[in-house]
Design a protein around this nucleic acid. Structure first.
Lengths: 192, 192
DNA sequence: AATAACCCGTACACCAGTGTTCGAGATCGG
DNA sequence: CCGATCTCGAACACTGGTGTACGGGTTATT
């Protein structure tokens, strides 16, 4: 009884399938039920509760996994050097994941006690804002609007792009280029 | 029995109070319950059902009233002449109401059978898009991005402004100026 | 002042989602 | 192949929201 068997492989596979399904379902409909998620994962509803004790904990697990992935994705990103080039890299690399994370957060909204999640929501935004402030100081980004507001515009445009992509009004191939061009041009615009 | 009394005045007042409360509640929380709305209106829950046979119909009534108000607000607006000046006028006049309407729509989402609502959702967007296309033709607005995408950016920025205002990160006094400047500069930006 | 219209609270039936329990059966791992 | 682990469906209690019914009390209108 001192030694315990390792978790069975099919259980691990199911756990992953549930997380995948949850991510997909919640991105479409923030109120997707446990039954919906279970069905999408090809698993019985009870099995879901076998892996996650509650809806809230499932949400949290999905969020944590998404955070981990996004950190891995962004870790290697270099934000030094020319602020505009850095912004371009940042946008292209992060706009999709930022949007899915945002949608997940919207789904969680009324629960959310995990500090790590809250922290890792604010942190990337702070990074963007710092980059914008640097761009302003170095004179390559506009100063007539506050860095705070410009940061908000930044995210708004990312989400708009993701929405247009989902709606099929923006072609997959163009998306990166379009969103980057839009954001950069907004931040460098000179008032007439 | 042929002549019927006119609706009592207090009933009309209550009906209005309910619509006001619904608008306010749903703007904050799209899932606000009938009980929440009734309480906010200072009225019993049953009274609400006396005026609106179902939640869905209440939603619809709120939407219709909002549409009427926004039409009245925008009717006198002149979109002719210099496209940039017209855009500036349009933004300043409409961004608040566009946002509340959008939030109401989000609350309704799963119901919505009324054609008039759907129509009056698409129509203002079409007007914006037409204005942008004219601006592009006349050479005062950028052509490197599609009018469709720029329209989407337009709305995204309006909603961002409304959100920042709600969050207290944007001062009431600055808001009009900021959102107009942002939108206009994005649409007139020249690619480097 | 009379009366119809309205408000209110309580109570109820109903539905959908959550989370739990149970036992039978499938499946992985040693 | 044996056993522990996992899955599954059905059933259940519980919660919160919706919509309805009723009866006593209030208020506007005539």
């Amino acid at each position: 009884m001192t030694t315990t068997r390792p978790t069975r492989s099919d259980a691990l596979r199911n756990r992953d399938a549930i997380l995948d399904a949850a991510l997909e379902c919640l991105a479409v409909d923030p109120n997707a039920s446990m039954a919906d998620i279970a069905k999408a994962a090809g698993v019985g509803r009870v099995t879901v509760y076998g892996h996650f004790s509650s809806r809230e904990q499932l949400l949290e697990s999905v969020l944590v996994r998404t955070i981990d992935r996004s950190e891995a994705e962004l870790a290697e990103l270099d934000l030094e050097g020319d602020p505009l080039a850095a912004l371009d890299r940042l946008v292209r690399r992060s706009w999709r994941i930022v949007d899915t994370f945002h949608r997940l957060l919207g789904a969680a909204e009324e629960s959310l006690s995990n500090d790590r999640i809250i922290a890792h929501h604010a942190e990337p935004m702070a990074r963007v804002r710092a980059l914008i402030e640097r761009g302003q100081r170095e004179g390559v980004m506009r100063r007539d609007l506050s860095a705070e507001w410009l940061t908000s515009c930044f995210t708004a445009l990312l989400h708009a792009a993701a929405g247009e992509l989902r709606a099929g009004r923006l072609a997959e191939a163009d998306a990166d280029q379009v969103v980057a061009a839009t954001v950069v041009s907004l931040l460098t615009a000179r008032v007439a």
